[in-house]
């Protein structure tokens, strides 16, 4: 079990490369949720990407170089590092030590990895965040990224936060355990299979009758929403941080 620091005064924030390039509002919402609990949030400006794209594609040397750049960027103090993505958090918490297993930097990297927390787990377990829903009644469903589910094991935490919102009806997604077909470079290296997977995912989302799906990972969101938009499907996708922030402000 992960040990969560209790009510820390300061945290670092790793925004992820996808929120830098495509979803800055989602990244920003995560910061606001942390600040709302009275935590000072520091954003190291030298941060970039967790390195997962290269790591998964068979280029560990490139991944290591990028990983070390993150370790350096967050070396100002030992404050916890909060990540608004189960996938990037899994990369940094679980895979970095494997990636550096035989490298001289192993212990430094390992200490860094132990400071990594996924946003919703951190809000729930370290900050005991509570939310009052000010939005209109809405029915939605939850999509869990594979690494949120199987590496960071934070799916229940994300759902627990959503369940605090009184006007939100959360419909469970059939085949929730199944990958949406993103898989980073998989989506462009095996586009035919990836397409079949995302189509099935959208069908399952549609079957819930929800008007929107919520997820904790921008990669899945880009994939699923991208397919929905191309099919003129009116269901919208939202990052959980952005969604919660909107609901509590009404």
């Amino acid at each position: 079990m992960t040990e969560f620091p209790q009510n820390p005064s300061t945290v670092y924030y790793f925004g992820t490369c996808l929120s830098d390039m495509i979803y800055p509002e989602a990244g920003m919402a995560g910061i606001r949720l942390l600040q709302r609990e009275g935590v000072e949030v520091i954003y190291p400006s030298r941060q970039s990407c967790c390195g997962q794209p290269a790591y998964n594609s068979g280029f560990p040397d490139e991944a290591r170089a990028v990983a070390l750049a993150q370790v350096d960027a967050f070396s100002g103090s030992n404050a916890p590092i909060v990540v608004p993505s189960g996938s990037c958090a899994g990369m940094m918490r679980i895979h970095y030590p494997l990636l550096f297993e035989h490298e001289p930097d192993y212990f430094r990297v390992k200490r860094f990895s132990e400071r990594i927390f996924e946003l919703t787990s951190f809000l729930r377990h370290s900050l005991n965040a509570t939310y009052t829903d000010k939005g209109p009644p809405v029915t939605l469903t939850w999509h869990s990224s594979c690494h949120a589910r199987r590496e960071m094991v934070c799916t229940e935490d994300s759902k627990a936060l959503l369940r605090q919102l009184a006007n939100v009806t959360l419909v469970e997604l059939e085949n929730e355990h199944e990958c949406c077909g993103f898989g980073g470079t998989f989506s462009v290296k095996r586009p035919e299979i990836s397409a079949a997977m995302v189509k099935d995912k959208v069908r399952d989302i549609q079957n819930t009758g929800a008007s929107a799906f919520i997820t904790g990972d921008c990669g899945c969101m880009m994939n699923i929403s991208g397919h929905m938009e191309s099919r003129k499907n009116p269901i919208s996708g939202h990052h959980i941080a952005e969604f919660i922030l909107e609901r509590i402000h009404g």
């Binding site: 670092y12 924030y13 925004g15 929120s19 830098d20 390039m21 495509i22 979803y23 800055p24 509002e25 990244g27 920003m28 910061i31 000072e40 949030v41 520091i42 954003y43 190291p44 400006s45 100002g76 586009p191 397409a195 995302v198 189509k199 880009m222 994939n223 991208g226 397919h227 938009e229 191309s230």
Partner: peptide, 25 residues
């Protein structure tokens, strides 16, 4: 082939945090 083109943000999270006064390091 089955998705819309990703829309790149006009301002990155790096810029946005700076504008919003988040402490950079």
């Amino acid at each position: 082939r089955v998705r819309t083109k990703p829309v790149f943000a006009k301002e990155s999270l790096k810029q946005l945090t700076r504008q919003e006064g988040i402490r950079h390091e």
